[in-house]
Design a protein around this nucleic acid. Structure first.
Lengths: 114, 114
DNA sequence: CTGGATCCATTAGGATACTG
DNA sequence: CAGTATCCTAATGGATCCAG
């Protein structure tokens, strides 16, 4: 294991940085957790439920779409509505998201003294 | 599971936000991954290996220490050296760290076309 | 309804030089 | 060696107005 670790050392470091680069900031993993766990949402729903202002939400959604983690569908309604949903590729992040949810739940118990 | 999800919905959201609040920024999880996987490091080692400038590193380490995720030990050397190491509580974050390392490795393969 | 445009305040992050 | 001080840039976030 030591040997493995030594040779893999550089890769391990760049790996976690690669992930942090894709899901950087306060919002991306949060948005993904909503879409992955609850399915598709419209722009307004996301804005309301997350508390993210439209300007920031637009930017975050565009970056997530660039990384193939969400898809954007314009609906033929009047006025137009737009649905965002997580892609199959985003499902591969579920392991990360779930681990963070579990840790957050446990951490809250810990700091509030159970 | 639907029922569970509905009642747990608010908690799930705040949970991931709680986690993101503790390990916010580009560096905290990266620093933790080094200390968790490689054991204790001195300030200078961390700065060199991570590429984080001293000012930022100091700030990040202080915040991690405040959250009981790392411990700081001043050694009786001349000149003084300081060792940082992950705490047992940081081990509970290993699940998150490892998931992010695995995802980053896979993501790199994906975007470079395997 | 979606989301772009503008303006402004706050914060995060980086480079460099310097002190105990 | 460890960490501060100073200075600066970029990113983040909120408010509001507006257009397709």
């Amino acid at each position: 294991m030591k040997d493995n670790q030594d040779v893999a050392c550089e890769n391990v470091h760049s790996a976690i940085q690669d992930t942090l680069y894709v899901v950087n900031g306060k919002w991306k993993l949060f948005i993904l957790s909503i879409l992955v766990n609850q399915g598709k949402k419209r722009f307004g729903e996301l804005s309301r439920e997350s508390g993210i202002s439209p300007r920031i939400l637009t930017k975050e959604l565009q970056e997530l779409e660039m990384n193939q983690l969400i898809s954007r569908t314009v609906c033929n309604t009047k006025p137009v509505t737009v649905e965002y949903s997580s892609t199959p590729y985003a499902e591969t992040l579920k392991e990360v998201i779930d681990a963070m949810i579990r840790w957050g739940q446990n951490h809250r118990k810990t700091i509030t003294g159970q």
